[in-house]
């Protein structure tokens, strides 16, 4: 059955990929230019980890901002080379086959598949070559000034607010009726996104989202150990 003007919004982390933002930040930090610098940056990621764990359940935007502060001052060349390396050597192997199957099914239903990723552009662009069955990939963008990363994520930060104004703007631009759209989330902050669409679904949900999905009677799919 083909549906027109309907979309499926799918969170990448947790549904398509087994690794999240902290892992990427740690990889970048561990491969900074100097040894001392590596230790300091890894320390920053280490500090961001518990914050990410706590806030990640409710506000991923702030958690992402904190994690990416660890790459502040790194050259754009290094960030982009390392990100490509990370995507090719690490992330590519963590793509979940069941996630790709889900995308295939959604596309077969005639939906426009929009992938929402917390990761930054230099990681997602090379990774996009290995993803399939999607129409659009939305990711975070990091700011560079004079060839150096400022550590700042550019607005809108894909994390918590995709259920808000960003979603309204996107739906309006593409003439989508949100009540006919589907959304697949994996984390607590995805609740906002899931609650705005007609067909929400929790995939491999974390504790917060699982509880809310049960309360709201949303379907739950589990395929990760």
């Amino acid at each position: 059955m083909t549906q027109t003007n309907t979309a499926a919004f799918v969170r990448v982390e947790g549904i398509l990929l087994a690794r999240g933002v902290l892992s990427a930040a740690a990889y970048l930090a561990a491969n900074a230019k100097k040894f001392g610098e590596r230790a300091v940056r890894l320390g920053l990621v280490g500090l961001a980890a518990p914050v990410h764990r706590l806030l990640g359940q409710t506000d991923r935007a702030l958690a992402h901002r904190l994690a990416h502060l660890a790459i502040r001052g790194m050259s754009q060349d290094r960030v982009e080379v390392l990100c490509e390396e990370y995507a090719e050597d690490v992330l590519k192997d963590t793509i979940l086959d069941q996630g790709l199957e889900l995308l295939k099914r959604l596309q077969a239903e005639g939906r426009r598949v929009v992938l929402l990723s917390d990761s930054i552009e230099p990681i997602m662009k090379p990774l996009a070559r290995h993803l399939k069955h999607y129409d659009e990939l939305v990711y975070n963008k990091i700011e560079f000034e004079d060839g150096e990363a400022t550590g700042k994520l550019l607005d809108p930060v894909i994390g918590s607010n995709v259920g808000g104004r960003w979603l309204d703007d996107y739906a309006a631009a593409h003439d989508f009726e949100l009540s006919r759209c589907a959304a697949y989330g994996a984390h607590g902050p995805d609740m906002l996104l899931l609650s705005r669409v007609g067909k929400p679904c929790a995939v491999n949900p974390d504790f917060v989202l699982r509880r809310s999905a049960k309360d709201a009677d949303w379907p739950i799919i589990d395929y990760r150990d």
């Binding site: 230019k33 050259s75 060349d77 290094r78 080379v81 390396e85 060839g147």
Partner: peptide
């Protein structure tokens, strides 16, 4: 300094 960093990244890519 950018050239040195690019040399380092190029060597890294090859050596890895």
């Amino acid at each position: 300094d950018r050239a040195v960093e690019l040399v380092a990244l190029a060597h890294r890519k090859h050596l890895r």
